[in-house]
Design a protein around this nucleic acid. Structure first.
Length: 191
DNA sequence: TGCCCGATTAACT
DNA sequence: GTTAATCGGGCAA
């Protein structure tokens, strides 16, 4: 059985945590799978929600590491983030894609979709598949209904520009599991 | 108060 | 490739 991760896992820099998260297994109410794609956002990053200081929406980003930040995207979808670094540094990792492994029937039902590859391939899609909403904003990652497990073997990680943003578009702060078919979008091969 | 826009997705042409 | 859906934050007036 893989090791259960505690909140101290999130104390290092947001970029180290982002890379370390690839290959770990996330479960929410027993449903989930292996994390295959994430993006890093830091307080000093113009693309981050925390860039302009605390608001009621992003307050959790200014809290201690190891908590969940959930926000509404385009008024329609929910997006899941893990808070990193010491309190006040306001950084978080956006979870962008999961390889569905546990609770496939529940995920298919919530998504109204059969195709496994598309169940959790995108930040809005994986929140719908797992049933995560604003109601779970601020919860701890190492206590129910969340559970996070260490990866069991070595992983090969690729990096590239983040998706869907208009600021700091050149920063290669999107990380993924090399070759995974469950990414929200393929990583461009190096030049 | 009003207006614009966004860490998205699915359904179009 | 383009666009609608839909709502809260941020900023101008």
């Amino acid at each position: 059985m893989p090791k259960r991760l505690s909140r101290t896992f999130f104390s290092p820099s947001v970029h180290k945590v982002a890379r370390d998260l690839i290959g770990t297994t996330l479960l929410f109410k027993g449903v989930g799978g292996r994390i295959v794609e994430v993006e890093a956002y830091h307080h000093t990053d113009p693309a981050a929600h925390s860039y302009r200081g605390p608001t009621s929406r992003n307050a959790v980003m200014f809290a201690p590491p190891g908590y969940v930040y959930v926000y509404r995207s385009y008024g329609i979808h929910w997006c899941l983030n893990f808070v990193c670094e010491p309190e006040g540094s306001a950084s978080a990792v956006l979870i962008r894609a999961i390889e569905p492994e546990t609770g496939l029937a529940a995920m298919r039902r919530r998504r109204g979709l059969d195709e496994e590859r598309l169940l959790c391939a995108g930040p809005g899609r994986l929140c719908e598949a797992l049933g995560i909403t604003r109601a779970h904003n601020g919860l701890a990652l190492d206590a129910p209904p969340f559970a996070l497990f260490a990866r069991t073997g070595a992983v090969e990680i690729v990096a590239g520009p983040r998706i869907g943003i208009t600021k700091a578009v050149d920063k290669p702060w999107r990380y993924g599991l090399k070759g995974s078919p469950f990414l929200s979008k393929a990583f461009s091969p190096p030049p």
